[in-house]
Nucleic acid binder design. Structure first.
Lengths: 149, 149
DNA sequence: CGATATTGTAACTAATTAAGTTACATGAAG
DNA sequence: CTTCATGTAACTTAATTAGTTACAATATCG
């Protein structure tokens, strides 16, 4: 089954941005982090700009900046801004009038709605700041072990 | 975004099978319920046979039967037997050595594992019997309203 | 035994989607 | 006014899944 890499790629980009809060990063630079094309980056994070999670500016010296402090950016918002559900479970009718299908859809739809709420709650408790903290912990560890050798 | 219809289609098929516990239904018959091809049906529910949720027999009078009572078949088992995750969230490394990516993956992977467990728990509380009960409720309602008119 | 009905599965084709690419208009800075 | 950047449309490519065809294996019935 194909897995969705967009959330993971976007978080990767955002942590890099959080690590360089002073200057805008270009789509070109962001693209190299996730080994892709600048246009793909712009397209992917366009929704984040609309949600105020990042800002973009054109022209010389332009690029992308976080729209607010990493502490105030939750993974739930990021995921929502990407415009994709985490649970791509279809509950759309395909045999209108079939009571069996109606029963299946009713039960499955209840599950889907409740599950999406649960997932959003879990993600809302993780912020971009948690990710950068985790990164710095790893970074410092490498430094220490390098000194030790 | 493309949504996965396999769980919904499979449940549709299984409820029909639960409603006719006395005789085997052929792939051909099952295929008509979900407007597809018998081979697609066989391929889709092959995993359910391996999991003991259904049984199949060849030859004249052959076809598919539930492997046990609907009360003892949970949606968690069915979903697992389909061999697809409900949360197609990639946490696979794409930039080996990048500490930012490692931090992102660590956090996201924890989330994924915990979320999958939560979803499985929710699904394990719903059985095929719940679905057939819901179907019969709808069926009886239609009957009543028909008589009323 | 031979005819018929059914699953199991491999191999191929078609349809759909997401990713990647090209091209260029728009706008900002020096 | 040149350069650098985003915004976005349009197109191409790649990957995945669904659908189809074909046929071997197997079971039943007469």
């Amino acid at each position: 089954m194909k897995r969705n890499t967009r959330l993971s790629s976007t978080l990767h980009i955002l942590v890099h941005m959080a690590e360089k809060p002073e200057h805008a990063l270009t789509s070109e630079q962001l693209a190299t982090f996730i080994h892709t094309n600048p246009v793909v980056v712009r397209r992917t994070i366009a929704g984040l700009r609309d949600a105020g999670i990042v800002t973009s500016s054109r022209g010389h010296g332009g690029g992308w900046l976080l729209g607010r402090a990493p502490e105030n950016i939750s993974l739930a918002e990021i995921s929502a801004a990407l415009g994709e559900t985490l649970l791509p479970l279809s509950t759309a009718p395909e045999s209108p009038g079939c009571l069996v299908e109606q029963a299946v859809i009713a039960v499955l739809d209840d599950f889907r709605v409740a599950a999406e709420k649960l997932l959003a709650e879990k993600l809302s408790r993780i912020t971009l700041a948690d990710l950068t903290a985790d990164f710095r912990r790893r970074y410092d560890l490498i430094g220490v072990s390098s000194h030790a050798v």
